[in-house]
Computed example of a mutant assay.
Amino acid sequence: MSSCDIYFNKGCKGKVYKRHVDDDCILCNDPDNPEKRDPCLCPPLGEPKKLTIVAPVIFDECGINLCKVIQRDIFKKYEDAASIQLRVIGIDYNIHYGEDGSKVEFIKNRPNCIRITLSHICVKLAVKVLDDRCCIIDTFCIDELFLPCEDDPEYDEETNPSSITIDLYAPYGVSYIDTCDECIPTINFLGFIENGEDARNDDLRQGVDSQALAKVVRFDPCRGVVAIGLTIYLKVVYFIQYKIPHDGIAVPPKCEPIYEVTENACKEFVEGDLLEQNILPLALFPNDDDDCGCDDDDGDGDRDGEDYKPMNDVAEEPQGPRPRRRGF
Rank of each mutant, 00 (worst) to 15 (best):
residue 227 A to Q: 12
residue 40 C to N: 15
residue 185 P to E: 02
residue 218 R to E: 11
residue 39 P to F: 05
residue 125 L to H: 01
residue 112 N to C: 11
residue 32 D to R: 15
residue 93 Y to D: 02
residue 325 R to M: 09
residue 114 I to G: 05
residue 176 Y to S: 04
residue 151 D to R: 07
residue 119 S to C: 05
residue 185 P to H: 00
residue 229 G to P: 00
residue 127 V to W: 02
residue 237 V to C: 00
residue 27 L to M: 12
residue 73 D to P: 03
residue 194 E to P: 02
residue 318 P to H: 05
residue 227 A to C: 15
residue 224 G to A: 02
residue 240 I to T: 12
residue 84 I to C: 04
residue 256 E to M: 10
residue 98 G to I: 09
residue 60 D to C: 08
residue 177 I to H: 06
residue 125 L to I: 01
residue 221 P to N: 07
residue 212 A to C: 13
residue 173 G to K: 02
residue 148 P to M: 05
residue 182 E to N: 12
residue 4 C to N: 10
residue 253 P to K: 09
residue 304 D to C: 07
residue 151 D to G: 08
residue 307 D to F: 07
residue 261 V to A: 14
residue 258 I to L: 15
residue 16 V to H: 09
residue 130 L to D: 01
residue 263 E to H: 08
residue 223 R to H: 10
residue 127 V to F: 01
residue 240 I to C: 12
residue 51 L to H: 11
residue 94 N to D: 12
residue 54 V to E: 14
residue 293 G to S: 12
residue 306 E to L: 09
residue 184 I to L: 10
residue 172 Y to K: 14
residue 48 P to Q: 10
residue 257 P to W: 04
residue 49 K to I: 05
residue 205 R to E: 07
residue 109 N to L: 08
residue 11 G to V: 11
residue 278 N to P: 01
residue 29 N to S: 13
residue 161 P to V: 05
residue 128 K to T: 05
residue 239 F to N: 15
residue 22 D to V: 09
residue 82 A to P: 01
residue 25 C to Y: 04
residue 233 Y to T: 08
residue 315 A to D: 11
residue 51 L to I: 13
residue 148 P to Q: 06
residue 33 N to C: 09
residue 201 N to P: 03
residue 150 E to L: 05
residue 23 D to T: 14
residue 7 Y to M: 06
residue 72 R to Q: 14
residue 33 N to Y: 04
residue 113 C to H: 15
residue 165 T to M: 07
residue 119 S to K: 01
residue 246 H to C: 12
residue 147 L to W: 01
residue 11 G to N: 13
residue 292 C to F: 10
residue 27 L to D: 06
residue 254 K to A: 08
residue 313 D to V: 13
residue 37 R to C: 09
residue 116 I to N: 02
residue 149 C to M: 10
residue 76 K to Q: 15
residue 186 T to H: 01
residue 266 C to E: 15
residue 98 G to K: 15
residue 283 A to R: 13
residue 82 A to S: 12
residue 267 K to L: 15
residue 49 K to S: 14
residue 152 D to G: 06
residue 10 K to S: 02
